[in-house]
């Protein structure tokens, strides 16, 4: 299976496809290394996105950085050797976040470098636990009352703006923000409970 066929087959990895689309354009051909890269990138995509997201203020910022991360990962993929792909990808992502931060030097909404380092170190350290949490989240989401589950998925759907969603459903943006905060906290509590009970990991 070549890389393009593989990407088409993995239809639910829309985000990876978007991020890697730029990489595919610069790839000279479809070879074994190419396929191996896409496989590793897709398998580790959620962890890398989580890592980047913890270091930048918004999801849009994270998407912007991820585009660059994907390109750099591919360009340097030949140098990885026997290294653990995820650990290596986190290192690349960290440098890309710092490069992105330099471009935003005047933006006071971006964390300072020492805080980025602290969070990046921790994110690397707990990446397996975060993978477990993401898996537990799928179960916890199903346990949510239907109305809350629908609401949170609508709020997180691609391109949705909370202000617009609030207007559509007849609520104030602030009440919606608060409900989403409560839902996230309930989900996190649920994932901790599942993980503590050994139901997931």
């Amino acid at each position: 299976m070549d890389a393009l066929a593989y990407m088409e087959d993995s239809s639910h990895f829309d985000r990876q496809i978007t991020e890697v689309a730029g990489v595919l354009d610069i790839m000279p051909g479809h070879d074994e290394r190419h396929d191996q890269f896409i496989r590793l990138y897709t398998a580790n995509g959620p962890a890398i996105r989580g890592f980047v997201r913890s270091l930048v203020p918004t999801r849009d910022d994270a998407a912007e950085v991820m585009q660059d991360v994907a390109v750099v990962l591919w360009r340097k993929f030949a140098e990885i050797g026997e290294q653990d792909f995820r650990r290596w990808a986190f290192g690349v992502a960290r440098l890309q976040v710092l490069a992105w931060k330099r471009d935003k030097a005047r933006d006071r909404h971006v964390f300072r470098s020492d805080v980025i380092d602290l969070i990046a170190d921790l994110s690397s350290e707990v990446s397996d636990a975060m993978e477990d949490q993401r898996e537990a989240l799928e179960t916890c989401l199903k346990k949510l009352p239907e109305r809350r589950r629908t609401l949170v998925l609508r709020a997180y759907a691609p391109g949705v703006r909370i202000n617009e969603l609030a207007t559509r459903i007849g609520r104030t943006p602030m009440s919606l923000y608060k409900e989403l905060q409560r839902i996230r906290e309930a989900l996190i509590e649920c994932t901790r409970r599942l993980l503590a009970e050994g139901k997931i990991a």
Binding site: R59, Q133, L141, L187
Partner: peptide
């Protein structure tokens, strides 16, 4: 992490 995962699931 949950924020990113929710966006993935919603997509």
């Amino acid at each position: 992490n949950v924020d990113v995962a929710l966006a993935d699931i919603a997509s």
